[in-house]
Deep mutational scan, measured.
Amino acid sequence: SPPKPKTIVLPPNWKTARDPEGKIYYYHVITRQTQWDPPTWESPGDDAS
């Protein structure tokens, strides 16, 4: 059997959903933003550039 996916701790107000093909995506319940990649926690002042 395939390994279980890691449990991802989502930031507040993010949910997972499935598209009609069964792929998992993520959406923000307030902004209605959707994305394929797991959302990352906002870390103020932490600039990755």
Results as ranks from 00 to 15, higher is better:
Ser1Glu: 03
Pro2Tyr: 15
Pro2Glu: 07
Pro2Gln: 12
Pro2Phe: 12
Pro2Asp: 15
Pro2Ser: 15
Pro2Leu: 15
Pro3Trp: 13
Pro3Tyr: 15
Pro3Lys: 15
Pro3Ser: 15
Pro3Asp: 15
Pro3Asn: 15
Lys4Pro: 05
Lys4Asp: 00
Lys4Leu: 06
Lys4Ile: 09
Lys4Val: 03
Lys4Arg: 03
Lys4Glu: 00
Lys4His: 07
Pro5Asp: 14
Pro5Ser: 15
Pro5Cys: 05
Pro5Glu: 13
Pro5Val: 15
Pro5Leu: 14
Pro5Gln: 12
Pro5Met: 15
Lys6Gln: 13
Lys6Phe: 09
Lys6Asp: 10
Lys6Cys: 06
Lys6Tyr: 07
Thr7Met: 12
Thr7Asn: 14
Thr7Val: 09
Thr7Arg: 13
Thr7Ala: 12
Thr7Tyr: 08
Thr7Gly: 14
Ile8Phe: 11
Ile8Thr: 12
Ile8Pro: 06
Val9Pro: 03
Val9Ile: 14
Val9Asp: 15
Val9Thr: 14
Val9Cys: 13
Val9Gln: 10
Leu10Thr: 04
Leu10Pro: 03
Leu10Lys: 03
Leu10Val: 07
Leu10Phe: 09
Leu10Gly: 03
Pro11Phe: 04
Pro11Gly: 07
Pro11Ala: 05
Pro11Glu: 04
Pro11His: 05
Pro11Trp: 01
Pro12Ala: 14
Pro12Met: 12
Pro12Leu: 07
Pro12Ile: 04
Pro12Lys: 13
Pro12Thr: 13
Asn13Ala: 03
Asn13Lys: 06
Asn13Ile: 03
Asn13Met: 13
Asn13Ser: 05
Asn13Gly: 08
Asn13Asp: 11
Asn13Arg: 10
Asn13Cys: 06
Trp14Pro: 00
Trp14Ser: 00
Trp14Arg: 00
Trp14Gly: 01
Trp14Ala: 01
Trp14Glu: 01
Trp14Asp: 02
Trp14Tyr: 03
Trp14Phe: 00
Lys15Gln: 06
Lys15Arg: 14
Thr16Gln: 14
Thr16Trp: 11
Ala17Phe: 03
Ala17Leu: 08
Ala17His: 02
Ala17Trp: 01
Ala17Gly: 11
Ala17Asn: 13
Ala17Thr: 07
Arg18Pro: 03
Arg18Ser: 03
Arg18Trp: 06
Arg18Gln: 04
Arg18Tyr: 10
Arg18Glu: 07
Arg18Lys: 10
Arg18Thr: 09
Asp19Glu: 06
Asp19Pro: 04
Asp19Arg: 03
Asp19Cys: 02
Pro20Phe: 05
Pro20Glu: 10
Pro20Met: 10
Pro20Arg: 12
Pro20Ala: 08
Pro20Asn: 12
Pro20Asp: 09
Pro20His: 08
Glu21Arg: 11
Glu21Ser: 13
Glu21Met: 11
Glu21Trp: 05
Glu21Phe: 09
Glu21Cys: 09
Glu21Val: 06
Glu21Ile: 06
Gly22Ser: 06
Gly22Tyr: 01
Gly22Lys: 04
Gly22Asn: 03
Gly22Trp: 07
Gly22Ile: 01
Gly22Asp: 09
Lys23Glu: 04
Lys23Tyr: 06
Lys23Pro: 00
Lys23Gly: 07
Lys23Ala: 06
Lys23Cys: 05
Ile24Phe: 03
Ile24Gly: 03
Ile24Lys: 04
Tyr25Met: 03
Tyr25Phe: 07
Tyr25Pro: 01
Tyr25Thr: 02
Tyr25Ala: 02
Tyr25Lys: 03
Tyr25Cys: 03
Tyr26Asn: 03
Tyr26Val: 03
Tyr26Ile: 01
Tyr26Ala: 01
Tyr26Gln: 01
Tyr26Pro: 01
Tyr26Arg: 01
Tyr26His: 02
Tyr27Lys: 07
Tyr27Met: 05
Tyr27Phe: 04
Tyr27Ser: 04
Tyr27Val: 08
Tyr27Pro: 00
His28Cys: 01
His28Trp: 00
His28Pro: 00
His28Glu: 02
His28Gly: 00
His28Gln: 02
His28Arg: 00
His28Leu: 00
His28Thr: 00
Val29Gln: 11
Val29Gly: 06
Val29Phe: 01
Val29Asn: 02
Val29Lys: 07
Val29Glu: 14
Val29Ala: 12
Val29Asp: 10
Ile30Tyr: 07
Ile30Arg: 11
Ile30Phe: 05
Ile30Gln: 06
Thr31Glu: 02
Thr31Asp: 02
Thr31Leu: 02
Thr31Trp: 00
Thr31Pro: 01
Thr31Lys: 02
Arg32Glu: 08
Arg32Asn: 12
Arg32His: 09
Arg32Ser: 05
Arg32Pro: 02
Arg32Cys: 05
Arg32Phe: 02
Gln33Thr: 09
Gln33Trp: 01
Gln33Gly: 01
Gln33Pro: 00
Thr34Asp: 01
Thr34Ala: 06
Thr34Asn: 04
Thr34Val: 10
Thr34Glu: 05
Thr34Phe: 11
Gln35Val: 08
Gln35Phe: 02
Gln35Pro: 03
Gln35Arg: 10
Gln35Cys: 05
Trp36Glu: 11
Trp36Leu: 10
Trp36Gly: 09
Trp36Met: 05
Asp37Leu: 08
Asp37Gln: 07
Asp37Met: 08
Asp37Pro: 04
Asp37Glu: 13
Asp37Ser: 12
Pro38Val: 10
Pro38Glu: 04
Pro38Gln: 07
Pro38Trp: 08
Pro38Ser: 04
Pro38Ala: 09
Pro39Trp: 00
Pro39Thr: 00
Pro39Ile: 01
Pro39Gly: 00
Pro39Val: 00
Pro39Cys: 01
Pro39Met: 00
Pro39Ala: 00
Pro39His: 02
Thr40Ala: 14
Thr40Gly: 13
Thr40Asp: 05
Thr40Leu: 10
Thr40Asn: 13
Thr40Arg: 11
Thr40Gln: 15
Trp41Met: 14
Trp41His: 14
Trp41Phe: 15
Trp41Asn: 11
Trp41Ala: 13
Trp41Cys: 13
Trp41Thr: 15
Trp41Asp: 13
Trp41Pro: 11
Glu42Ala: 09
Glu42Lys: 10
Glu42Phe: 14
Glu42Cys: 06
Glu42Ser: 12
Glu42Arg: 08
Glu42Met: 04
Ser43Thr: 11
Ser43Met: 10
Ser43Cys: 04
Ser43His: 07
Ser43Arg: 10
Ser43Trp: 07
Ser43Tyr: 07
Pro44Ser: 08
Pro44Ala: 09
Pro44Trp: 06
Pro44Tyr: 12
Gly45Thr: 09
Gly45Tyr: 13
Gly45Trp: 12
Gly45Glu: 12
Gly45Cys: 12
Asp46Met: 06
Asp46His: 14
Asp46Arg: 06
Asp46Trp: 05
Asp47Met: 07
Asp47His: 11
Asp47Ala: 11
Asp47Glu: 13
Asp47Tyr: 11
Asp47Cys: 08
Asp47Gln: 15
Ala48Gly: 12
Ala48Val: 08
Ala48Lys: 13
Ala48Ser: 11
Ala48Asn: 14
Ala48His: 10
Ala48Pro: 13
Ala48Ile: 13
Ala48Gln: 09
Ser49Phe: 05
Ser49Ala: 04
Ser49Thr: 12
Ser49Ile: 10
